[in-house]
Amino acid sequence: MKKRPKWFQQTSFNQPNTSDTSYCVFKNLYPSSSEDTTTEEISAQNITTDNKPSSNEMTKDDFLLEIHQFKQQKLYEEALSCIQLLFEKNIVDSDIIYELADTYLCLHDYERAFNWTQKLKAQSPQDCRSLLLEIQLLLVHGKKEEALTTLNHLLSNKITLKNEKDYQLLDMIIEKLKKIFKADKLMRRCPNLNTYQKQRRQSLKTQKQKNPVNHDLTVHQSTVINSAKGVIMPDTNTNINPALQNTINQIWDMQIANKENISTILATPCEQVSQCIMSQVLSYKKKIWLFNYLADIFRTHNNLQSAIFLLRQALLLDDENDFILKNLGYLLCQNGEYPNALVVLKDIKHKDFAVLDLIAKCQDLKN
């Protein structure tokens, strides 16, 4: 049976071509001609033109409403454009900074998301949103212990959550940590967790009795929020695509993918692929194999962002897996993320000559 290498063999290592715009806070990724306009952009134009005042007449609330509409339709670049207008108007507060950090998180631009999260945290230390964003980013990078520490800080300091969306996000984060840590360790590190969950269950029960219709909408919104974030929180209520489920089952059974399987995987967003893997009734070790194998498929078809995303999800299951760390470090180097690559590569316990050579090259390119 044909076997793939356990880690991606390096064939070439070239410093990626970057332009000045790649280092800007805001990216201009829109087509210059009308011929390149996509269906999503036409939809975005409809949002911004129908019964909408000019940008000079718009208030902060108008902009925030428009940003939320764009994000609901996953038009994140358009949302960034709105935020840029707010910056130009010198309307910058904790709400705007949060929307910017959250949008970058949805775009999987974790470095910028982290930078703006830290700015929000410095500006408003008691703002629960900065801590929720920080926990998600720590989980994306496989820093489970740090995420647990931040959760304990959020609960022990009794930081107030602003709205139902924040409560739903915190609930999903807690469920994710329950899948990572044993119950005794989780309760020992977060002694206030049990109290919070009791109060939360009582609150939801009261809310459902008062307004059952709104409660049903809240459950639906929870699913939407879950799928929009960079960190995949497995949800038993999520409907997995049967075709994708069947494809992944075939790949696991045969330990190899045919052309049809590869086409299905490449046509599917990496978030859905990750959700499908996590829904499989398999051990963590087998799920890690699937994450690594499918990341290799994306890599060989020049989709590095999706490959990196899947490898980071694998690290949430085992952050000490040397093969996953090697692959992730190599792809981060290929993507020009040298500081992040160094952090990942240095976490490898058993460093062979290839890893040491890669670390040296990353240090040279970083400098």
Rank of each mutant, 00 (worst) to 15 (best):
K74T: 13
L75M: 15
Y76C: 13
E78N: 10
E78M: 14
E78L: 09
A79W: 05
L80G: 01
L80F: 00
L80K: 03
C82N: 08
I83G: 03
Q84G: 01
L85D: 09
L86P: 02
L86M: 15
L86R: 08
N90S: 13
V92N: 03
D93T: 05
D93A: 07
D95K: 15
D95S: 15
I96G: 00
I97Q: 02
Y98L: 04
L100K: 01
L100N: 03
A101E: 08
T103Y: 01
L105I: 05
H108C: 13
D109T: 02
D109A: 08
D109M: 07
D109I: 05
Y110P: 02
Y110E: 03
A113G: 01
A113F: 03
W116V: 00
W116K: 01
W116G: 00
T117W: 03
K119G: 00
K119P: 00
L120F: 04
K121N: 07
Q123P: 00
S124A: 14
S124Q: 14
P125E: 01
D127E: 08
D127G: 10
C128K: 13
R129N: 03
S130E: 02
L131I: 05
L132C: 06
L133H: 03
L133Y: 00
I135R: 06
I135N: 07
Q136P: 02
L137P: 01
L137T: 08
L138K: 13
G142C: 10
K143I: 09
K143R: 10
E145L: 15
E145H: 14
E145S: 15
A147M: 13
A147W: 09
L148Q: 06
T149E: 12
T150M: 12
T150D: 06
L151V: 08
H153S: 10
S156H: 13
N157M: 02
N157D: 10
N157T: 03
K158R: 15
I159L: 10
T160S: 14
N163I: 08
N163D: 13
E164W: 08
K165F: 07
D166Y: 05
Y167E: 12
Q168I: 13
L169F: 01
L169D: 00
L170C: 10
D171Y: 01
M172I: 07
I174P: 00
I174K: 04
L177D: 02
K179E: 04
I180T: 12
I180R: 07
K182G: 15
K182Q: 11
D184V: 10
D184A: 12
L186N: 01
R188C: 04
R188T: 12
N192F: 10
L193H: 02
Y196Q: 11
Y196F: 15
Y196C: 09
Y196M: 05
Q197F: 03
Q197V: 04
K198N: 11
R200C: 02
R201T: 09
Q202P: 00
Q202M: 09
S203M: 11
S203F: 12
S203W: 09
L204K: 14
L204W: 12
L204A: 10
